[in-house]
Amino acid sequence: MAMEQMMPSGEMQERMQEAARKLEPMMEQVSEFVVRTRDVHKIYLMGKVEVHALRGVTLDIKRGEYISIMGPSGSGKSTLFNMIGGLDKPSSGSVYINEVDLAQLDAYELAWLRCRTIGYIFQTFNLIPVMTALENVTLPMIFAGVPEDERRDRGMELLKRVGLAERWNHKPFELSGGQQQRVAIARALANDPAIILADEPTGNLDLKTGKEIIELLKELNQEKGVTIISATHDLKMIDVSDRVIWIRDGQIARIEDRSKIRVEAALEVEEALMEGELPDVP
């Protein structure tokens, strides 16, 4: 468990173990669903116009699943994504992470959740430019109170896992886009999260690098059992996804299982072509 890796000293250690004892039985009781949303609505006010970004999204995501949320821009997929990450609050409806209703959490608990349960990956990589690769990876560990030696060791291990161990001392601007995204993936894994939220992770990458990143995410998904939820309109994602959730006009248009995916995806491309809105076709 993640908790056990960050025990600094004697007394603290005991407290942490106590917390883990309390937490563990709850984790077992927790259902197989790591994310659940119930009739989530979101209404933005843009000037005087109400924008209905989400219109009742109900969704269950199982532990260890690889999910792609697809849809044209403006479909509400980013909004849904922000809701799951606790970055935004629904206007009505509820979002549960590990069966915990996000609406009930205060600022500290939300920060705790973002720090330990959720790892974020962004389209624009969002590494902190003044920090080296290793410092970027260890930043979430600083917030989680991991002691320095352990931070360094774990940070290096993660960088090694994403194939950038020898670049640990490079600043983001000295790395290529693909390398930056790898560092970002290592950073997302820093505190051993249950969920990785990836917002268009391949959006700023070329075809080949994008493929590599998708493969890396899939490998990590299988190795660590981390649930990956990715908002994307990159059709390359479909191949590796367990389920694809199509969002249209703030609603779930349909959910496809792995078996059906390929055929449906081809149809989707066709349909998009007919409508004249071509998605990112390789």
Binding site: A19, K22, E99, Q104, G145
Partner: peptide, 29 residues
């Protein structure tokens, strides 16, 4: 499953414990 028991929060930790587990030491800042 009951979630918020007494001072316990959603994560099975007390608020105090959660506060202690999110930190930025002055030296790091």
């Amino acid at each position: 499953m009951t979630r918020a028991r007494g001072s316990m929060t959603a994560f099975g930790l007390t608020r105090e414990e959660i506060r202690r587990q999110i930190q930025l030491p002055w030296s790091e800042a």
